[in-house]
Amino acid sequence: MATVGSQSESVATDQALPQERIDSSAAVISDDVEAILDEYDVFREVCPVAYTNHYGGYWLMTRYEDIKAAALDSETFISSVRAVIPSDPRGLRRPPLNFDAPNHTPYRTALDRTLKPARIKRLADRLEQHAQALLSSLLQRQQGDICTEFAAQFAAWVETEWLNLTPDTAPRLASTASAWVNAWRQMDGEKTTFYSTQLYDIARAVLADRREHPRDPEVDPTSSLLLERSSNGEPLEEIHLVGCIRQSLVVGMVAPPLMLGGICNYLSGDQQLQQRLRDDPSLIPAAIEEFVRMFSPYRGFARTVSKETVMYGQTIRLGVPMSPTYSVANRDPAVFNDPHRFVLNRPNIAMHLGFGRGRHRCVGQPLAKLYVHVASDGVAPRPG
């Protein structure tokens, strides 16, 4: 198996852009959104599969069709080696995100069972109450940080309600998940472990309670998981059950708050669209789809190939991660006309990859859409 270093040397002279140019690109190292988007446009045109040495080395994909194809081909582009960039500094693997089929399937089936339309509809009323309670102090002060004081706190309530946790869990989850994410971003293994251990404690407690007091598996993810069996017909292993619950605790704590921040920032500069959505709430679902396309928050999902694969003349070797970056695909002008502009009722909006595709499409998609819908309605209340 080739090492990351030898792979870097082998592609440095073959890529359409010099290695130094790629490694110093805003698409790789910057947090400046406009600069990142500009660089993605350059890469897409002249270097659609680019290798960078950052985070141990990985390939960056920038064309919609390539990214979609990789997401749909779960036999070649697998998740069990690397599923995010940067990876958890401790190298832990949790289902279903870090598993491939058939090992991935029972976990996915169990979670999907609790996210059917009827369940989502029942959650809506309670979530609206939480949203209004969180917003009341911001509205009274007429100022505040919408991401930290509302979006992250509301995300914790969404997770708490979906997983049927006790009310005191929500504020604990919000603060712990935030600290864990920051430690992960800084690749601080010690702090990542410290905060992750607290999340694991919550997961173990929930699993122990549901073993003793099982609930309706149609509405309780942990009880649903306990019904499932592995591909060999055996009960799912304790370590993986805890890992899946732990994964579920934070699955909605990262992306939805970031996306809501992008939405609020955009709406603050488009008073006309704000008023239009207030006057006609039936437009909100279409607006949310376009917002998801424009503000897909993840840049770092990853796959590795199960066999050497050649793309645009570059050999992708086993073990070297690839980033099928959905936010880049959603700005591809070959698919979305005028991709950097908000277009309500965009004709091909269903083609966006904001929630991925294939076996690893976002399991929480229905919950995420409910989050954005309730939150958007709360932060932009209609007169009267």
Rank of each mutant, 00 (worst) to 15 (best):
T114F: 04
V84L: 09
P95R: 09
R93A: 12
D73E: 01
R94K: 14
R82K: 10
T105R: 11
N98H: 15
I78H: 04
A101I: 12
P106Y: 11
Y107D: 13
F77D: 04
N103D: 15
R108H: 11
F99C: 06
S79C: 07
I85F: 02
I85T: 02
A71T: 02
N103A: 15
P106S: 11
A101R: 13
P102Y: 11
P86R: 10
R94S: 11
R93W: 00
P102M: 09
P86V: 12
S80G: 08
A83C: 08
P89E: 00
A110W: 09
G91E: 03
A83V: 01
T105P: 00
P106T: 14
R94P: 04
S80M: 01
H104I: 02
I78V: 08
D100T: 13
V81D: 02
P96S: 11
S74H: 05
T109P: 05
D100L: 02
R82T: 10
T109H: 13
F77G: 03
D100V: 09
S74L: 02
F99Q: 09
S87V: 07
T76C: 01
I78F: 02
V84A: 07
A110K: 07
R108Y: 09
I85D: 01
F77C: 00
V84Q: 08
A101K: 11
A110Q: 12
D100I: 06
I85N: 03
P86Q: 14
D112R: 10
D100Q: 08
T76D: 01
D112F: 05
F99M: 05
D112P: 00
V84D: 08
F99N: 08
L72E: 03
R108W: 04
T109L: 12
T105V: 15
T114S: 03
L92S: 14
D112T: 15
V81N: 01
L72P: 05
S79T: 07
P89M: 04
A71H: 04
A110R: 11
T105D: 14
T105M: 08
T105S: 11
T114V: 09
A110L: 07
L111D: 12
L72R: 03
V84H: 07
R90E: 01
T114N: 04
F77K: 00
R93L: 12
S79D: 08
A71G: 03
N103C: 00
R93M: 09
T76H: 06
H104P: 01
D88E: 13
R90S: 04
N103K: 15
D112V: 13
D88A: 05
R82N: 06
A110Y: 12
P102L: 08
